[in-house]
Amino acid sequence: MNKILRRERLVPNIHVLEVHAPEVAAKCVPGQFVMVMPDEKGERIPLTIGDWDREKGAVTVAFMAVGTTTHKLALMSAGDELPVFVGPLGKPSEIGKFGTVLVAGGCFGIAAIHPIARALKEAGNTVVTLIDVKANYLLYWEDKLRKVSDSFFVSARDHKFGTTHYVQGKIKELLDGGLKADRAVAIGCTYLMYSACEATRAAGIKTTVALNPIMVDGTGMCGACRCAVGGKTKFACVDGPDFDGHAVDWTELFSRRKSYLDDEMKSLCHWERSLLAPGVSGASVALPLSTGGAQLAPGA
Protein backbone atom coordinates (compact mmCIF):
# COMPACT_ATOMS: atom_id res chain seq x y z
CA MET A 1 0.00 0.00 0.00
CA ASN A 2 1.27 3.45 -0.87
CA LYS A 3 0.12 6.40 1.15
CA ILE A 4 -1.12 9.50 -0.59
CA LEU A 5 0.77 12.56 0.64
CA ARG A 6 -1.26 15.11 -1.30
CA ARG A 7 -4.18 15.15 -3.71
CA GLU A 8 -5.12 18.47 -5.14
CA ARG A 9 -7.33 19.73 -7.93
CA LEU A 10 -5.08 22.06 -9.87
CA VAL A 11 -7.56 23.29 -12.46
CA PRO A 12 -10.91 21.94 -13.68
CA ASN A 13 -10.53 18.17 -14.27
CA ILE A 14 -6.79 18.04 -13.59
CA HIS A 15 -5.65 16.69 -10.25
CA VAL A 16 -2.19 16.09 -8.88
CA LEU A 17 -1.36 13.15 -6.67
CA GLU A 18 1.77 12.96 -4.57
CA VAL A 19 2.34 9.43 -3.36
CA HIS A 20 4.83 7.97 -0.91
CA ALA A 21 6.56 5.34 -3.04
CA PRO A 22 10.27 5.28 -2.15
CA GLU A 23 11.13 2.42 -4.52
CA VAL A 24 9.59 4.24 -7.47
CA ALA A 25 11.07 7.57 -6.46
CA ALA A 26 14.55 6.03 -6.15
CA LYS A 27 14.63 4.72 -9.69
CA CYS A 28 12.29 6.71 -11.91
CA VAL A 29 13.62 8.78 -14.79
CA PRO A 30 11.86 11.16 -17.22
CA GLY A 31 9.30 9.57 -19.49
CA GLN A 32 8.36 6.67 -17.22
CA PHE A 33 4.98 5.88 -15.78
CA VAL A 34 3.31 4.04 -12.92
CA MET A 35 0.27 1.74 -12.88
CA VAL A 36 -2.30 2.81 -10.32
CA MET A 37 -5.42 1.34 -8.79
CA PRO A 38 -7.54 3.47 -6.46
CA ASP A 39 -9.17 0.41 -4.91
CA GLU A 40 -8.68 -3.30 -5.05
CA LYS A 41 -11.61 -3.97 -7.34
CA GLY A 42 -11.16 -1.30 -9.99
CA GLU A 43 -9.14 -1.15 -13.18
CA ARG A 44 -5.43 -0.41 -13.43
CA ILE A 45 -4.49 2.77 -15.24
CA PRO A 46 -1.12 4.14 -16.34
CA LEU A 47 -0.14 7.64 -15.19
CA THR A 48 2.99 9.42 -16.39
CA ILE A 49 5.35 10.51 -13.64
CA GLY A 50 5.35 14.30 -13.43
CA ASP A 51 7.94 14.83 -10.70
CA TRP A 52 9.65 13.05 -7.82
CA ASP A 53 11.56 13.69 -4.63
CA ARG A 54 14.06 10.92 -4.01
CA GLU A 55 14.83 12.07 -0.47
CA LYS A 56 11.21 12.22 0.54
CA GLY A 57 10.46 9.05 -1.38
CA ALA A 58 7.60 10.84 -3.11
CA VAL A 59 6.34 10.55 -6.66
CA THR A 60 3.98 13.08 -8.23
CA VAL A 61 1.56 12.28 -11.02
CA ALA A 62 -1.09 14.45 -12.64
CA PHE A 63 -4.26 12.99 -14.05
CA MET A 64 -7.49 14.08 -15.63
CA ALA A 65 -10.81 13.06 -14.03
CA VAL A 66 -12.29 11.55 -17.17
CA GLY A 67 -13.47 8.06 -16.24
CA THR A 68 -14.52 5.96 -13.29
CA THR A 69 -11.03 5.24 -12.02
CA THR A 70 -9.81 8.81 -12.29
CA HIS A 71 -13.02 10.04 -10.66
CA LYS A 72 -12.31 7.65 -7.81
CA LEU A 73 -8.75 8.93 -7.56
CA ALA A 74 -10.07 12.48 -7.51
CA LEU A 75 -12.03 11.62 -4.38
CA MET A 76 -8.95 10.45 -2.48
CA SER A 77 -6.98 12.65 -0.18
CA ALA A 78 -3.84 12.77 1.91
CA GLY A 79 -3.59 9.77 4.20
CA ASP A 80 -5.55 7.45 1.91
CA GLU A 81 -3.69 4.47 0.58
CA LEU A 82 -3.42 3.14 -2.95
CA PRO A 83 -3.42 -0.65 -3.17
CA VAL A 84 -1.45 -0.53 -6.41
CA PHE A 85 1.20 1.99 -7.37
CA VAL A 86 3.63 0.03 -9.52
CA GLY A 87 6.63 1.45 -11.32
CA PRO A 88 8.64 2.93 -12.71
CA LEU A 89 7.52 1.32 -15.96
CA GLY A 90 8.24 1.95 -19.61
CA LYS A 91 11.39 3.01 -21.35
CA PRO A 92 12.91 6.33 -20.29
CA SER A 93 12.63 9.24 -22.69
CA GLU A 94 15.61 9.78 -24.92
CA ILE A 95 17.60 12.62 -23.37
CA GLY A 96 20.65 13.96 -25.21
CA LYS A 97 22.15 17.15 -26.42
CA PHE A 98 20.11 17.86 -29.51
CA GLY A 99 20.34 21.65 -29.69
CA THR A 100 16.94 23.30 -29.59
CA VAL A 101 14.04 21.15 -28.44
CA LEU A 102 10.40 22.14 -28.74
CA VAL A 103 8.47 20.63 -25.83
CA ALA A 104 4.69 20.73 -26.24
CA GLY A 105 2.15 19.66 -23.64
CA GLY A 106 -1.53 19.93 -22.96
CA CYS A 107 -3.98 18.76 -20.36
CA PHE A 108 -2.38 16.08 -18.10
CA GLY A 109 0.62 16.30 -20.46
CA ILE A 110 1.57 19.66 -18.98
CA ALA A 111 2.79 17.76 -15.94
CA ALA A 112 4.12 14.85 -17.97
CA ILE A 113 6.49 17.00 -20.02
CA HIS A 114 7.93 18.68 -16.95
CA PRO A 115 10.62 16.12 -16.06
CA ILE A 116 11.52 15.74 -19.73
CA ALA A 117 11.93 19.49 -20.20
CA ARG A 118 13.98 19.61 -17.03
CA ALA A 119 16.27 16.80 -18.15
CA LEU A 120 16.65 18.30 -21.63
CA LYS A 121 17.57 21.61 -20.08
CA GLU A 122 20.08 19.92 -17.77
CA ALA A 123 21.56 18.18 -20.80
CA GLY A 124 22.33 21.56 -22.29
CA ASN A 125 19.55 21.97 -24.77
CA THR A 126 17.65 25.14 -25.52
CA VAL A 127 14.18 24.26 -24.34
CA VAL A 128 11.23 25.95 -26.02
CA THR A 129 8.08 25.04 -24.12
CA LEU A 130 4.64 25.35 -25.64
CA ILE A 131 1.59 24.69 -23.50
CA ASP A 132 -1.85 24.28 -24.98
CA VAL A 133 -4.86 25.13 -22.87
CA LYS A 134 -8.38 25.96 -23.91
CA ALA A 135 -8.62 28.85 -21.48
CA ASN A 136 -6.52 30.69 -18.93
CA TYR A 137 -8.13 28.88 -16.03
CA LEU A 138 -6.77 25.55 -17.25
CA LEU A 139 -3.10 26.53 -17.10
CA TYR A 140 -1.07 25.01 -14.27
CA TRP A 141 2.61 24.44 -13.39
CA GLU A 142 3.53 27.55 -15.39
CA ASP A 143 6.20 28.50 -12.83
CA LYS A 144 7.70 25.02 -12.74
CA LEU A 145 7.88 24.90 -16.53
CA ARG A 146 9.24 28.41 -16.96
CA LYS A 147 12.11 27.45 -14.65
CA VAL A 148 13.24 24.69 -16.99
CA SER A 149 12.51 26.51 -20.26
CA ASP A 150 14.47 29.03 -22.27
CA SER A 151 11.29 30.35 -23.78
CA PHE A 152 7.68 29.67 -22.90
CA PHE A 153 4.58 29.98 -25.07
CA VAL A 154 0.91 29.28 -24.66
CA SER A 155 -1.60 28.40 -27.34
CA ALA A 156 -5.17 28.96 -26.19
CA ARG A 157 -8.64 29.88 -27.31
CA ASP A 158 -8.83 32.72 -24.86
CA HIS A 159 -8.69 36.47 -25.33
CA LYS A 160 -6.29 36.69 -22.40
CA PHE A 161 -3.51 35.16 -24.49
CA GLY A 162 -4.42 37.06 -27.63
CA THR A 163 -4.51 33.84 -29.64
CA THR A 164 -7.06 31.36 -30.86
CA HIS A 165 -4.52 28.86 -32.16
CA TYR A 166 -4.58 25.21 -31.38
CA VAL A 167 -1.18 23.64 -30.75
CA GLN A 168 -0.33 22.99 -34.39
CA GLY A 169 -1.15 26.57 -35.36
CA LYS A 170 1.19 27.89 -32.71
CA ILE A 171 3.97 25.47 -33.71
CA LYS A 172 3.59 26.62 -37.29
CA GLU A 173 3.70 30.24 -36.16
CA LEU A 174 6.90 29.60 -34.15
CA LEU A 175 8.56 27.74 -37.02
CA ASP A 176 7.50 30.40 -39.51
CA GLY A 177 8.86 32.98 -37.09
CA GLY A 178 12.32 31.48 -37.37
CA LEU A 179 12.43 28.86 -34.63
CA LYS A 180 14.97 26.22 -35.60
CA ALA A 181 14.04 23.16 -33.63
CA ASP A 182 16.22 20.06 -33.77
CA ARG A 183 13.83 17.88 -31.88
CA ALA A 184 10.28 18.02 -30.58
CA VAL A 185 8.46 16.23 -27.77
CA ALA A 186 4.68 16.33 -27.43
CA ILE A 187 2.59 14.86 -24.63
CA GLY A 188 -1.11 15.27 -24.01
CA CYS A 189 -4.30 13.81 -25.40
CA THR A 190 -4.01 11.76 -28.57
CA TYR A 191 -5.36 14.60 -30.65
CA LEU A 192 -2.77 17.06 -29.32
CA MET A 193 0.10 14.68 -30.04
CA TYR A 194 -1.26 13.92 -33.49
CA SER A 195 -1.68 17.64 -34.24
CA ALA A 196 1.81 18.49 -33.02
CA CYS A 197 3.26 15.76 -35.26
CA GLU A 198 1.34 17.10 -38.23
CA ALA A 199 2.86 20.53 -37.57
CA THR A 200 6.44 19.30 -37.34
CA ARG A 201 6.27 16.74 -40.14
CA ALA A 202 6.87 19.17 -43.02
CA ALA A 203 9.88 20.68 -41.29
CA GLY A 204 11.27 17.19 -40.75
CA ILE A 205 11.69 17.71 -37.00
CA LYS A 206 11.89 14.36 -35.25
CA THR A 207 8.97 14.38 -32.81
CA THR A 208 8.64 12.04 -29.88
CA VAL A 209 5.20 11.35 -28.42
CA ALA A 210 4.21 9.37 -25.31
CA LEU A 211 1.35 7.18 -26.46
CA ASN A 212 -1.65 6.63 -24.28
CA PRO A 213 -3.54 3.56 -25.48
CA ILE A 214 -5.75 1.58 -23.12
CA MET A 215 -3.37 -0.34 -20.89
CA VAL A 216 -4.10 -3.11 -18.42
CA ASP A 217 -0.98 -4.60 -16.82
CA GLY A 218 1.75 -2.24 -17.99
CA THR A 219 4.40 -4.96 -18.17
CA GLY A 220 3.97 -6.37 -21.65
CA MET A 221 1.78 -9.33 -20.74
CA CYS A 222 -1.70 -8.48 -21.89
CA GLY A 223 -1.17 -6.69 -25.17
CA ALA A 224 -4.07 -4.31 -24.66
CA CYS A 225 -1.81 -1.32 -25.35
CA ARG A 226 -0.71 -2.48 -28.78
CA CYS A 227 -0.22 0.21 -31.36
CA ALA A 228 1.28 0.32 -34.84
CA VAL A 229 4.49 2.30 -35.26
CA GLY A 230 6.37 2.25 -38.54
CA GLY A 231 4.19 -0.60 -39.71
CA LYS A 232 5.11 -2.81 -36.74
CA THR A 233 3.00 -3.69 -33.74
CA LYS A 234 4.43 -2.31 -30.54
CA PHE A 235 3.32 -2.48 -26.93
CA ALA A 236 3.19 1.04 -25.52
CA CYS A 237 4.03 -0.26 -22.04
CA VAL A 238 7.31 -2.00 -22.74
CA ASP A 239 8.35 -0.73 -26.16
CA GLY A 240 7.33 2.82 -25.28
CA PRO A 241 5.54 4.85 -24.20
CA ASP A 242 7.74 7.13 -26.32
CA PHE A 243 7.61 6.62 -30.07
CA ASP A 244 8.42 8.54 -33.20
CA GLY A 245 5.20 10.46 -33.76
CA HIS A 246 5.69 10.57 -37.52
CA ALA A 247 5.64 6.77 -37.68
CA VAL A 248 2.56 6.20 -35.50
CA ASP A 249 -0.63 4.87 -37.09
CA TRP A 250 -2.88 7.54 -35.56
CA THR A 251 -6.10 6.32 -37.16
CA GLU A 252 -5.72 2.96 -35.47
CA LEU A 253 -4.81 4.58 -32.15
CA PHE A 254 -7.85 6.88 -32.21
CA SER A 255 -10.05 3.92 -32.97
CA ARG A 256 -8.58 1.62 -30.31
CA ARG A 257 -8.89 4.29 -27.65
CA LYS A 258 -12.66 4.33 -28.21
CA SER A 259 -13.05 0.52 -28.01
CA TYR A 260 -14.77 0.54 -24.63
CA LEU A 261 -16.34 3.99 -24.69
CA ASP A 262 -19.88 2.68 -24.16
CA ASP A 263 -18.79 0.50 -21.27
CA GLU A 264 -16.77 3.34 -19.79
CA MET A 265 -19.88 5.54 -19.80
CA LYS A 266 -21.96 2.81 -18.22
CA SER A 267 -19.34 2.21 -15.60
CA LEU A 268 -19.18 5.88 -14.68
CA CYS A 269 -22.97 6.17 -14.42
CA HIS A 270 -23.16 3.00 -12.38
CA TRP A 271 -20.49 4.19 -10.00
CA GLU A 272 -22.11 7.60 -9.60
CA ARG A 273 -25.43 5.96 -8.87
CA SER A 274 -23.82 3.70 -6.29
CA LEU A 275 -22.48 6.78 -4.50
CA LEU A 276 -25.84 8.43 -4.74
CA ALA A 277 -27.87 5.67 -3.26
CA PRO A 278 -25.75 3.30 -1.23
CA GLY A 279 -27.71 0.19 -0.54
CA VAL A 280 -30.12 0.84 -3.39
CA SER A 281 -28.80 -1.50 -6.01
CA GLY A 282 -29.72 -1.43 -9.64
CA ALA A 283 -32.19 -3.88 -11.00
CA SER A 284 -31.17 -7.47 -10.74
CA VAL A 285 -32.73 -10.55 -12.14
CA ALA A 286 -32.95 -12.27 -8.80
CA LEU A 287 -36.45 -13.36 -7.88
CA PRO A 288 -38.70 -12.21 -6.48
CA LEU A 289 -39.16 -8.72 -7.72
CA SER A 290 -41.74 -6.61 -6.04
CA THR A 291 -44.78 -6.23 -8.18
CA GLY A 292 -47.29 -3.52 -8.64
CA GLY A 293 -50.23 -5.85 -8.88
CA ALA A 294 -53.04 -6.56 -6.51
CA GLN A 295 -52.61 -9.60 -4.38
CA LEU A 296 -54.84 -12.51 -5.12
CA ALA A 297 -56.31 -13.48 -1.81
CA PRO A 298 -58.12 -16.76 -2.39
CA GLY A 299 -61.09 -17.45 -0.25
CA ALA A 300 -61.10 -13.96 1.17
Binding site: N13, K134, C189, Y191, K258, L261
Partner: peptide, 26 residues
Amino acid sequence: ACLVCTEKERCDEHKASIRKSAEVAG
Protein backbone atom coordinates in the same frame (compact mmCIF):
# COMPACT_ATOMS: atom_id res chain seq x y z
CA ALA B 1 -13.06 27.87 -26.01
CA CYS B 2 -14.64 25.28 -28.29
CA LEU B 3 -17.16 27.77 -29.66
CA VAL B 4 -14.39 29.86 -31.15
CA CYS B 5 -11.87 27.09 -31.90
CA THR B 6 -10.97 26.33 -35.48
CA GLU B 7 -10.46 22.67 -34.63
CA LYS B 8 -13.92 22.04 -33.20
CA GLU B 9 -15.17 19.68 -35.85
CA ARG B 10 -12.11 17.43 -35.94
CA CYS B 11 -11.90 17.64 -32.19
CA ASP B 12 -15.51 16.46 -31.77
CA GLU B 13 -14.64 13.41 -33.78
CA HIS B 14 -11.46 12.51 -31.93
CA LYS B 15 -12.29 13.49 -28.39
CA ALA B 16 -15.48 11.50 -27.81
CA SER B 17 -14.24 10.13 -24.52
CA ILE B 18 -13.57 13.54 -23.01
CA ARG B 19 -17.30 13.96 -22.40
CA LYS B 20 -16.84 11.77 -19.34
CA SER B 21 -14.84 14.52 -17.67
CA ALA B 22 -15.84 15.74 -14.25
CA GLU B 23 -16.06 19.38 -15.31
CA VAL B 24 -17.01 21.06 -18.56
CA ALA B 25 -14.31 23.31 -19.95
CA GLY B 26 -15.66 23.58 -23.49
